[in-house]
Design a protein around this nucleic acid. Structure first.
Lengths: 246, 246
DNA sequence: GGCTCATGTAAAGGTCGTTCACATGAGCTG
DNA sequence: CAGCTCATGTGAACGACCTTTACATGAGCC
């Protein structure tokens, strides 16, 4: 794809013109290939066609580049979670599960971002902008949990919405990190990570008193459920993720 | 502690006598300090008082050292999980939750091992012994889930035991990895990781139809619960992890 | 046209991982 | 005990990386 700038010296002047962006893109590719640990500043420079010292004009050091990527990652993450949540349409539980799937999809489709965000060792508080982006993303989950909490049937113990949000986050991250990416995906599973997480969230929601039968409980006053975007292939078989109660 | 061997050249002969073990110990300390990514082979050699080339007599390369540590970690992990499970005493649910706490405790108290095992990028299948150790550890969780599954009340959808085991693993790993160790612990939480995980597992179990009231249901025929080993400080407040149902 | 300053370069210092030829000495063999 | 052998440790060297420093270039502005 985008050749032009990021090639050899001859094809451009002394000045690159867009080095910062080129470095970010190069790093993204390298991290996707070899992980944040294996990514090298020098490689990124080489890939952008500049000397090894040039990147230092745009990033204090290697870690700042990583941190920038993590920040961008959180921004994209936020936008994908927002889209998945879709303000709770068509119904809160459905939308909530969609957020879970979006989490996994992001981890799978944007391994470089996910790696930089959660597995690169970059401390969240190394950069205020990073921290802010991270919080904005989490707030989507939190807002969804808030709505869910408001809906929880009485008569069941009900944790604070914040705690519910953290629960969902930990489940999604746990599944993603153990089974859904890179080396971790080599652990052989009798089911897909998506199925695993979906079942987990369903059981959890049932534990909170939510009706989680997939069949619409009685055609309530909501529009017919939107077909989940990625129901092809590893979709949950009709009747729920693990079949009927015995 | 064990000084003696692992110091300077003068104090030992040309041969170290116990270098392999010394290197493992040194690496363990270094990883605990700076993470598996920051740990260097050269540093471990220095700490053991030998030249930078010496470690190559005992490990093919840096990764093999890491992999050895991960393997030992899984072995200790297994033994701690086994102890926590205590074959399901005094009752399955209680023991199951104890396993969850043991998981977190291990992640917190043995950060070096945990790091090498799950966050160092060492692929599980890089070494058959490592893979075997990892599977043995997981099998504890799996066996516990098996017992739990056999006990699940009818009338509720019931996932395969394997899936339950994976759910528990993902919750524990998610909480540990996001909130319970190193840099991640800097995310400020309104509760302790232990509380978070305990509540998560309780809700999950309730979703499976298990009665999870903390107050002993009526002083059943079991001995008074053993006080959890680390109940100081962040213990769960009486009345359950998040208070009563509204 | 000339100045300035952001941006890029080359060179150098320090650290690592890894390899190689060589040194040492523990333990066996006779 | 003499001598041999082989596992174990050494020092030097290579190439790669991160980072800093002094210097070069040229885009944009007066």
């Amino acid at each position: 794809m985008s050749w032009r700038k990021e090639t050899r010296r001859a094809e451009r002047g002394y000045h690159h013109g867009n080095l910062k962006e080129a470095l970010l893109q190069a790093a993204l590719g390298l991290i996707a290939e070899k992980g944040a640990a294996g990514f090298t500043f020098a490689d990124a420079a080489r890939m952008a066609g500049v000397s090894a010292a040039a990147p230092y004009r745009h990033f204090r050091d290697r870690e700042e580049l990583l941190s920038s990527i993590a920040q961008r990652g959180f921004e994209q993450f936020e936008s994908r979670l927002t889209a998945a949540w879709d303000d709770g349409r068509p119904d809160t539980v459905t939308a909530f599960e969609r957020v879970g799937r979006a989490y996994l999809a992001f981890a799978r489709e944007e391994p470089a971002f996910y790696n930089a965000m959660f597995e690169s060792g970059v401390p969240v508080d190394s950069n205020p902008a990073l921290q802010a982006a991270s919080e904005r993303a989490f707030n989507i989950i939190r807002a969804a949990a808030e709505r869910l909490a408001a809906l929880a049937p009485p008569g069941t113990p009900r944790p604070p919405a914040m705690m519910m949000a953290l629960h969902i986050w930990s489940m999604a991250h746990g599944v993603a990190s153990l089974f859904s990416r890179g080396d971790a995906a080599r652990r052989k599973l009798p089911m897909s990570p998506d199925e695993l997480l979906e079942a987990e969230v369903l059981i959890y929601l049932r534990g909170l008193g939510f009706p989680t039968d997939r069949r619409p409980p009685a055609k309530s006053a909501e529009p017919p459920p939107v077909p989940p975007e990625a129901s092809s292939g590893s979709g949950v078989p009709p009747g729920g993720p693990w079949g009927k109660p015995k």
